[in-house]
């Protein structure tokens, strides 16, 4: 695990009247990782982010950011991109970036130089003098991202970084985020795009109704939700295999002939044993064999739906 802690949250709670928006959350975010903050709408993600940013104060608990309680100096080392976002419409791109950079403590010269370098990198250099309102939506979002990282922060908190971006720009922003991470920066990313989380994030926190539901490295969580089952694709009478207690034909095979199936195993049977049994059988052949580890989307739905059913 990385040694430097970017954010340390200890038992924070926050109520709005009788409504408990955040309920006893504890988690850490480290430098050099992308940390996902997940949860359904209204689960307390934004309140949590606002408390980290000192926009709101928690009713209880403590938060340390970049090595101490948040101060004005700390804020200069954070880049924040809220979910619903916009820019000054009638201001030239470079002028606006310089202004926001200066508010983050850059000198006038630095702010301008860095803005130009970033615009160059994002292939927006030729638009530097244009007003924001003259840019396409995709360009505007790249500018917003540029503003977030302009002052070379140590921590980026970014809400739905990819919403509204086309696949090409998604790749550009993703590459920049990963580059930032590789240089030791910490990224907190709140998103509903589970695929992006699976591709980019090292660890995650999932909250629901203000409480922690899942927390830890992505792989650990997926294993934790892994069923004692395997997914196979091929031909054969799967239910005849020793240790298989139930066979479910998967719905999502691309072709009719794919014959994808989920095999549930009894407690004593390991996936390895099943693989060996298939290999030694002449009536069966497989094109694919994998552990039935659910994707994050499924886990997400299971956590949220599970609670709904439990009520």
């Amino acid at each position: 695990m990385a040694t430097n802690t970017a954010i340390s949250v200890q038992h924070i709670s926050k109520s709005y009247g009788n409504f408990k928006a955040v309920d006893d959350l504890t988690f850490d975010v480290y430098g050099g990782e992308v940390f996902a903050l997940l949860g359904p709408n209204g689960s307390g993600k934004t309140t949590t982010i606002r408390m980290i940013l000192d926009i709101l104060r928690p009713d209880a608990g403590a938060i340390q950011v970049l090595g101490g309680p948040i101060t004005d100096a700390t804020k200069d080392r954070i880049g924040y991109l809220p979910e619903e976002r916009g820019l000054y419409r009638n201001v030239p791109v470079l002028e606006m970036m310089s202004y926001l950079g200066r508010l983050k403590g850059l000198s006038g010269n630095d702010a301008k130089k860095r803005s130009l370098a970033l615009l160059e990198k994002l292939e927006l250099a030729e638009h530097a003098k244009k007003k924001i309102s003259e840019l396409s939506k995709g360009m505007q979002q790249k500018v917003q991202f540029a503003v977030t990282v302009l002052h070379d922060p140590a921590l980026i908190i970014i809400d739905e970084p990819f919403s509204g971006l086309d696949p090409v720009n998604t790749l550009v922003i993703k590459a920049l985020l990963l580059e930032f991470r590789d240089k030791g920066g910490a990224v907190v990313m709140s998103t509903h795009q589970m695929q992006q989380v699976e591709e980019m994030c090292n660890r995650l926190l999932m909250i629901h109704r203000g409480q922690q539901r899942l927390y830890g490295p992505l792989e650990d969580i997926r294993k934790q939700y892994a069923q004692h089952a395997i997914i196979v694709e091929g031909e054969g009478n799967w239910s005849s295999l020793p240790g298989v207690i139930r066979v479910e034909q998967a719905q999502n095979g691309a072709r009719e002939s794919d014959h994808q199936a989920m095999l549930y195993l009894d407690a004593q049977t390991s996936p390895d044993a099943v693989l060996a049994a298939i290999a030694s059988s002449r009536q069966m052949n497989i094109r694919r064999f994998e552990l039935a580890v659910p994707d994050l989307n499924e886990i997400f739905i299971r956590v949220v739906e599970g609670e709904r059913h439990a009520q």
Binding site: L53, Y80, E84, R85, L87, L103
Partner: peptide, 17 residues
């Protein structure tokens, strides 16, 4: 009004008080 409706306000108040 512009800063609030475009949510630049949120970026501003995390930069300055």
């Amino acid at each position: 009004v512009e800063e609030k409706s475009t949510r630049i306000m949120e970026i501003l108040i995390t930069s300055i008080t």
